[in-house]
Every structure is written in C-alpha cells, then in structure tokens.
Design a protein around this nucleic acid. Structure first.
Lengths: 349, 349
DNA sequence: TTGTAAGCGTTATCAA
DNA sequence: TTGATAACGCTTACAA
C-alpha cells in the first residue's frame, strides 16, 4: 500500500509537499503539484484517515447512537442524518440497540478517536445518564431527550401538542369516550403523548379515566393486545388514540378480527405517520412526524457545535407535527373527491 | 484529554505496561495492573482508536455502502449488518446513495484507514465496476452483485426462482394473461425477476409477450403508473406480477382507483414481503426475502475473509426466498380460518 | 515555494 | 515482568 513517502519519492519532492498538494490549503508550485498528482495516481495512493486524524485531531466522522434500527421511523432518521452528513463531507459511524448506560458508554468509548461528535437518540432517562461523561470529551447532540442536558443541543418532537391536537380532533367529531394505548414508561415521547391526551380531554371538559389508558410498548403486538382490554371497558370507548402508528395498526387489526368496523364502531388515531399509515384500510389518521427532518436537524446542530466548539452555544429545537386526517377516525379529508389521483407522495427529501 | 502517557505517569509505570494492561494479551503483575486500572479510571482514560489502528493496522470497523437508505428493505439489511457486526465487536461506517463509480470510489477512499473491510450492495454493473480497484486494498463482500467479482465473496437473492414460483402460482390459479411490472434496467434483481417471470410462463406453455411487461423503477409511483398502461392492453391481463412490493402497492392503489377489485378483477403478486405487504387490503401475496438475514450473511462472509485474509477463500451464497400466499392473488391461505389470531410476527431476528 | 523534523497516541520489538 | 524506543502515516511549525 503506497504511503505519502512513496508518493514523495516518486514525485521527487518531500512528504510535506505531497501533504500540501492533497490538502490544498498552502500554495504549491503548479508544476510540482502536477508531478505529485501524477505520482499519486500512478501509485494509486489513498491517504490514510487514521493517520490524518491522529495529527489533526479531526475525523470527519459523526457517531450516531440509536436505541434501535427497527422500522420506518428510525430508518428515516438515519437517512436524514446520513444525507446531510454526507453533503457536509462527514461520514457516519452508526450503532443501534442500546438499552443500558453501560451499552451506551461502551459504544461511545469504542468510537473514541474515530468521531468528532455524537448524535444520540436518548428518549429515556436511562440512556441520557451516560451523556454527562461523554460530553466532557465530545460534543453531543440529543434527539428526543427526556430533559435538557448541560451543554447539549437537542431536537425534540412536539409530542405533547400533537397528542392534544389528535384528541381535540376526536372530540370535535363528537367522541367523549376516548381511550389511549400509551407507549413504554420512561420514554419521553410516550409520556408527552399521554400528557397531551389528558390535556386534550380536560380542555374538552372530559375527565380522563385511568382505566381508559392501556400500557403498550410502541410495538404492533402491544396495540393488538390492547384492543381486548379496551373492549372490556364499560362504557366502551368509541375512539382510541395510539401513541404511535405501529400500535394503532395492531389495534386496527385486532378490532377487525373482533368484528368491529373502523371508524364506524371505533375511531382510531395514531402518531408518526409511517409510510404504512396511508395504506391501511381505512387509511390511518395520524400525527405526522418528519423523521427525516429530525435527523437532518440533529446533524445541523452538530455541525454548528463543531464549527464553534468553545462558543458553548446550546440550541434546543422542537420539530413540529401536524395532524394528518384520513378516514380511520371517521372524518373525510378536506378534498371533495373520494378517489385521490395518486398515492400520497412520500417525504422523499 | 488523558493519554496513555498520563496514565503511565499516574500509575508510576511505563506506557508499555499501560498498553499491556489494556490489551490483556501479555502477562502483567497483578498489583501493577490494579494500579494502572486505578490510574486509568481516575483520569477517565479512553484509548484513542485512531492511534491504535495506526499501529495495528486494524480498525474493528466495517464499511457499509448502500445505493440508498430508503424504505423497509434497506433498513432491514442495515439492521442485520449492524447487529452481527456489533456482536462481533465491529463498528459500522455507513454510507448511502451511491449512483456512480465516482461516488463509490470517493466514499470508499474517505474510509481508507478507517475500515477493515467493505460490505457493499452493488446491484448493477455500474457500481460493481469500482470494486476491482477497491479490492486491491480492502476485502470486499458484495450484496446482490450482477456477476461474480474476482476475490469477492457475495450474497445474492434467489430472484429468479422466486419470480418463477410466483408466476407458477398464478398459473396454478388459472391465469393465462399474466403481466409484469419490471424493475429498473441494469439492476440484477430486477432482471432476474423478469427472467424468472418469462421462464415461469414458458414452463406453463404460455408465450411471454413484450407488451405485457411494463418498465418500473422499484418505486411505488412507477407501480401506480404501470396500471394505466396495463389496463389498455388487449387481452387485458388478469394477473400482474410486480418486481417488488412497493410497485405492487402502487399498482393496487391505482387499480382500486380505477374501480377494479383485487383479486377479483386483477390478481397481484409482489416481491420482498416488506412489512406493509401484510397490511394491505387485500393482504399482498409476495415472495418473501429475509433482508435481515441478507445483511447478516454478508457480515459473516466478511468476518470469514478477515479471519483468513490470505486464504483467498471466496464464497458465493444465495439467500432463499419463499412465496407467501395471501389474498391479493385470489387464493386462500392454507389455514382454514379467515380471521387469524394475531398479526403475523415480524422477522424480528 | 519547499524541506526538515517534531509530534499525534498507540503497539510491538528488544533488552534488561 | 517491565521499560526504552522505534515504528505507524500523516500534518504542521519553522527554517531555508
């Protein structure tokens, strides 16, 4: 494997000159540069990134830590991260499935010296605990943190307001017995959605009832299971708000099997607007979250931090959500026609 | 930031000893080791990966190059890769969206010195062209290559046999006018599926007709657009095989809008079995591809290569597919009941 | 404009 | 069992 020294020898210059040519910041005689390029391509020379970052203390790589890599939502977040990072000449070192503080620390430690900053999704207090130690050595940007962390910029999802809007919409359709399939305890988005649900009810003058809230875990199977529990309640709920689409889909599937029609017997609203939502029969009303933008914003904040490391400027952003009304809640979309001209466009960028 | 030297000083030993303690291969006096551990944790010392890989020539990182990061299929591949890599103490440097040879080379070059090997999805001859040059410096494992590449292990999808089985199934249901929405030209899986479709017809004594094949691009919108073209054909096809699920879904959506019923008027079969397929109404019959296993196998092959770099053992694997019969093709599942007990389990591992 | 040489933080080879 | 010290491949003062 050719090194900078080989190139220097072949081109008849010093290694410093080769380095200058490759970095393009210092002036180099044009002829000399041509010789260097020629030698480099003759030897098929590729600079060694590890060696480079050892001296420069920069890696052009962003670490990405996610709780999981499963499903549409995370995959969109990653895509957003990757795309912007790539455009800004950064690479991404990805790692999924981190449950404990030790997991997170181990993963981060393994990245030491290989990344310039860490973008981390830390939706519960368990994972976010590790951040304090990491923060001392690396810039960290958090996605959906349960609380503000010193010195970390972050992007959150407007879960509270989204949930409130979803409930308000159901109320507007005349529903009073509105149940919820909640997300995992400790997860900040799950809890914010639950809080938004309760607030939405209160604002409509409806007293939230504990027995109308069934605990789920964001997975489809827990939505499926929730149906049985909710159908036993008296009065029986006429509408259900699920803390995410996966659970809403499981729920709809169970309702169908129980011989109930959505939205006629039970209205259903989800959260996230994953691709699948629009293809459900009936199409799922849900709160749209732009996961791609979420990933992009996180990277943007990281780039800002990296550009001004001592600035200590901390930005806390929230990504807005919007209720996407489809027919699973019994309302008709604003468009008059019943047969749309084509599939809804995906959020391809 | 504490370095090995700081630890050595604090522990009152040489840097060599610290290194030995951290790598655990050479014998070190137990008391000395304890001192080193104490010093290291007091200083919160994390070894620098770049420095380490500069001397060892190993990075414990795998590069992953994908054409795109969009959708269920790729996300499952990544998950398979990440999970196995992680279990084997490797990190993953991911990069998506590579269209041209230059793109691929640039991305790979940027990884130089940061990865031990490259797992690359190269479904067309354009992307695979770059491999020869990369192969000289790095072990490469290919996913779905259009042809065998010297010195590269690879995993392919059994696209041909899957397509043939899909068509055979339609034939078995009595269909004779079977159309196809093909994938992008140049993509090996698209072409194998087309070949399998033709073979399936021939084996049933049906002459394939060019006008029954509509070109798509693997995206939903192209499936949607294909419907119009196919409905114009005379005789009108009674069944359509789409080269992937996204296009099948777009197609179904268009058929519905045209007032046609699936499977009564037109039977539809897809390919991939993405999560959404089971939730379509009617649920989509499709050829199941275990994308998670695909990713895992690729990593396994890479680890084999890495374990025996000079061995030059090249393994070419194919991942089997299986027809998943649901109701979009008009057949009933083997199970007697019409209302399954729960959602189909996802391929969570 | 170019070259020399001193690091960067490790591991690995020798001696001791 | 330990310690000096020479790499590893690069960037970057500083000097020429």
């Amino acid at each position: 494997m050719a090194t900078i020294r080989d190139v220097a020898k072949t081109a008849g210059v010093s290694i410093a000159t080769v380095s200058r040519v490759f970095n393009g910041n210092t002036a180099v005689n044009e002829d000399t540069a041509l010789q260097v390029w020629a030698a480099a391509s003759a030897l098929d020379y590729w600079p060694n990134g590890a060696a480079r970052s050892l001296t420069t203390n920069r890696t052009s790589t962003l670490g990405v830590l996610l709780p999981d890599l499963y499903g549409d939502f995370f995959s969109e977040v990653i895509r957003g991260i990757d795309q912007l990072a790539k455009r800004e000449k950064y690479q991404t070192l990805v790692s999924g499935s981190h449950a404990s503080v030790e997991d997170v620390l181990a993963a981060t430690r393994a990245m030491r010296g290989r990344i310039d900053g860490l973008v981390m999704m830390a939706p519960d207090s368990i994972t976010v605990e590790s951040v304090a130690r990491i923060r001392r050595r690396l810039p960290v940007v958090l996605i959906s943190p349960p609380f503000a962390v010193d010195g970390c910029s972050s992007v959150s999802i407007a879960s509270f307001s989204g949930a409130r809007a979803a409930v308000a919409h159901l109320v507007g359709l005349g529903h009073r017995e509105i149940a919820m399939v909640a997300g995992p305890a400790g997860n900040v988005d799950a809890e914010e959605r639950l809080r938004g649900y309760r607030r939405g009810l209160l604002e409509a003058g409806i007293q939230p009832r504990d027995e109308f809230v069934v605990q789920g875990d964001f997975r489809e199977s827990s939505g499926y299971a929730a149906a049985a529990a909710l159908l036993d309640r008296r009065p029986r709920p006429t509408a259900v708000f699920a803390a995410n689409d996966c659970m809403a889909i499981g729920l709809m599937s169970a309702l169908g099997n129980a011989g109930l029609s959505v939205p006629h017997d039970v209205a259903v609203v989800g959260f996230d607007n994953i691709t699948m939502a629009q293809y459900m029969r009936p199409p799922l009303t849900t709160v749209h979250v732009d996961a791609y933008a979420l990933g992009q914003k996180a990277v943007r904040l990281m780039l800002d931090t990296l550009a001004d490391p001592e600035g200590g400027k901390v930005t806390v952003q929230t990504i807005d959500v919007i209720l996407k009304v489809r027919s699973s809640c019994g309302a008709r979309p604003a468009v008059a026609t019943n047969t749309p001209a084509g599939p809804e466009t995906n959020q391809q960028r």
